[in-house]
Write a protein that binds this DNA or RNA. Structure first.
Lengths: 332, 332
DNA sequence: TTGTAGGCGTTATCAT
DNA sequence: ATGATAACGCCTACAA
């Protein structure tokens, strides 16, 4: 690996000049720039990013901490982040917090230790402590879930849940249940809140016992749906807050011989590729996941570029979700 | 951030002693070790990994280069890698090559430049050039797809394809088609080869025109299935090499009013969570993706630990896939 | 056993 | 505009 001094020697200048020429810093004679460029090319010189980072006290790496790598919603976010970061010359370290505050904290520690340039975080709990990052001046952007005093990119998920519930009501369903995520996870709370708002604004049954909170996994959805369907007065429709849960819910309904749409209306969050393969096809709330990641990455890069000079207060961008009506929320 | 000299000062020793004490290197007086530990704890000292890496010429980072982050098969691999790496104190940088040799090469460059400790790679083409990595002595492990002269963790995918095809033959299907990935991708070739082997060993129709190669995406699967179904003599069963393709295939079959199982037997690679949600449920070849990642990561860490002293020649581990028979490959 | 000193490759400061 | 020099934080000969 050629170093900066190799290039300097080859171009007949000092290492400092090479550095300046290659970084387009202060004014270097155009002729020297050309000579340096040529020498660097010939030697196949690439600056050692470790040394550079050590010196600059900052790496060209972003940390992306998400709750579940196996959830397509989050991988779509990751893709958005990656595409934007990539073109700006940044790498992305993907960290899987597993909806676990401890793991999340550990990854935040790693991020600090690795001196990443910025952190993208979808907080798993309410307990995220950003003090250390703040002290270092490392910018943070919250993705999909809010966080105090930092830039945020969210989905108007409450509005989406309300709309989805209204859609079920309009379809003639009257005992609508809600299966959402654990308390403390913002998206879970927001979806519940939107659901409640729609229910209460209408004449339909408002029964607390039709609400279930469970982890964002198939198993949770299955258990919740089974409980609800065993009720003396089971729901005639379900709003499901997450696609993994939806898998469990649909399995449970099948187990009960209840047909989506005809017997139990179903709307689930997140558009999944298999939504149209099942019968009837699944009505979903499609979230702009890729966009979420791309926008968040851009905000983070802006903060990084502005170098902690905080030229503007924390900003909140809210993207819209889109209801895609299919057979599972329609009586034949 | 406390540095090693802060700790040294606080413990009343030299920085060198702190380094040795904390790294458990050569013999340091037990009493001093204790004093250093205490000082380090009190100051919340964490070694600066940048400086350490610059000095050691190696980082505690693994690069994982996969073909598609949105494919659950690869995310499961990633999880396996991550879990193993994590417990060994390594971070993982996840890179998405998009089945694109250029992107792959770019990421390999990044890996070299970032001086990662090792690379896990599922090669997108046949053209992967490892010369630079080799020169640096960076160990490489191939995952899911082979690569010359390096450790490899593969699935016996040809065998699995053969078995799946035999299963279809045993089910009474006679014109079995095969939709596989692009030429040059090993898994695609191996699956085709297993399919051909089974077909040729039996008495059923062996027609080259029943084979289609297409990208590993839903769109590719859809197009291929449509073509096949429009044939004068369409297939009565399909072996599909990938779950994304399977989505397209199933959509195409539905479009043709062909029912999986009854009209067209279907077996697809990769067990997906929604396999049991569709009607009839999808017969799949379940690959041990998580295991694949975990085993590969362990092999890589072994190589790293042995520090290029190449104590053993390249090793190939082959894991078994499992056929899960469901309704889509059964005539009612 | 412990300390001293040099260097990993860059970049920023200070001269010139 | 350019060059010499120091420093980022750590590790490891080598010396004591």
């Amino acid at each position: 690996m050629a170093t900066i001094s190799d290039v300097a020697a080859s171009a007949g200048v000092s290492a400092a000049t090479v550095s300046r020429a290659l970084n387009g810093k202060s004014t270097v004679a155009p002729e020297l720039v050309a000579r340096v460029r040529k020498a660097a090319d010939e030697l196949g010189y690439h600056p050692n990013s470790l040394a550079r980072s050590l010196r600059r006290q900052e790496t060209a790496v972003l940390a992306l901490i998400i709750a579940d790598v196996e959830n397509p919603f989050f991988t779509a976010i990751a893709r958005g982040v990656e595409d934007v970061a990539q073109t700006a010359g940044y790498s992305v370290v993907l960290c899987n917090s597993d909806e676990n505050s401890d793991k999340e904290r550990r990854y935040l520690d790693v991020a600090i230790q690795e001196q990443v340039a910025g952190v993208l975080l979808s907080p798993s709990g309410a307990t995220t402590d950003l003090e250390l990052l703040r002290r270092r001046g490392t910018p943070v952007v919250a993705v999909d879930r809010p966080l105090d005093d930092v830039d945020q990119v969210l989905v108007d998920t409450r509005q989406a849940a309300e709309e989805a519930t209204c859609h079920l009501i309009a379809g003639g369903y009257r005992r609508i249940g809600c299966i959402t995520g654990p308390a403390g996870i913002w998206t879970a709370d927001a979806r519940l809140s939107g659901y409640l708002r729609a229910v209460r604004a209408s004449e339909i049954v408002d029964d607390n016992d039709l609400v279930r909170r469970t982890e964002y996994r198939a198993e949770g959805g299955r258990a919740a749906a089974m409980e609800l369907m065993r009720l003396p007065e089971p729901p005639d429709a379900l709003l499901v807050a997450n696609s993994a849960q939806a898998i469990g819910v649909l399995e449970a309904l099948a187990g009960h011989g209840a047909r989506p749409g005809a017997d139990v209306g179903v709307v689930a969050f997140d558009d999944v590729p298999w939504a149209t393969l099942i019968d009837p096809p699944l009505t979903v709330v499609a979230q702009p996941a890729y966009e979420l990641g791309a926008v968040a990455a851009r905000m983070l890069l802006d903060r990084i570029a502005s170098g902690g000079r905080t030229p503007h207060p924390p900003e909140v961008r809210t993207l819209e979700a889109r209801l895609i009506e299919r057979g599972s929320s329609r009586r034949p």
